[in-house]
């Protein structure tokens, strides 16, 4: 990934994060007693399966933006890129999986 594309990906990930945070807020504001257990379950899933992964991706991007990629060992670059790819993959239709 090039430095120029980092900011684009960062915007994308921050956008996902906002969307999911908004979803959590909506779910938290549902006060219908019959939906409460499902809302709790969904919030937990979003937090653990989506937000944590996005946070890891954002953190990896911040590190790659702050340090020259060539100055990092190959394995570190690969690990950080893997976190970013995992976070980006949540943008596709698969992200909806947590709501099913």
């Amino acid at each position: 990934m090039t430095k120029a594309s980092y900011s684009g990906v960062m915007g994308l990930l921050l956008g996902f994060k906002q969307e999911h945070e908004a979803s959590i807020e909506r779910l938290s504001n549902m006060h219908d007693i019959q939906f409460e257990p499902y809302c709790k379950l969904l919030i937990e899933r979003i937090q653990t399966q989506v937000l944590d992964v996005i946070d890891d991706g954002i953190e990896s991007l911040l590190l790659l933006q702050s340090i020259e990629e060539s100055a990092l060992p190959q394995e570190t670059q690969e690990r950080l890129n893997a976190f970013i790819i995992a976070a980006k993959q949540l943008s596709g239709p698969s992200k909806m999986g947590v709501y099913e």
Binding site: D56, L62, L63, S66, A71, L80
Partner: peptide, 20 residues
């Protein structure tokens, strides 16, 4: 990289304190 990461922690401490 270890030294640079320490620098980055000092610069962006509030933004990065997570697992990665």
């Amino acid at each position: 990289a270890l030294l640079r990461l320490e620098d980055v922690r000092n610069q962006l401490g509030h933004q990065i304190s997570g697992r990665v």
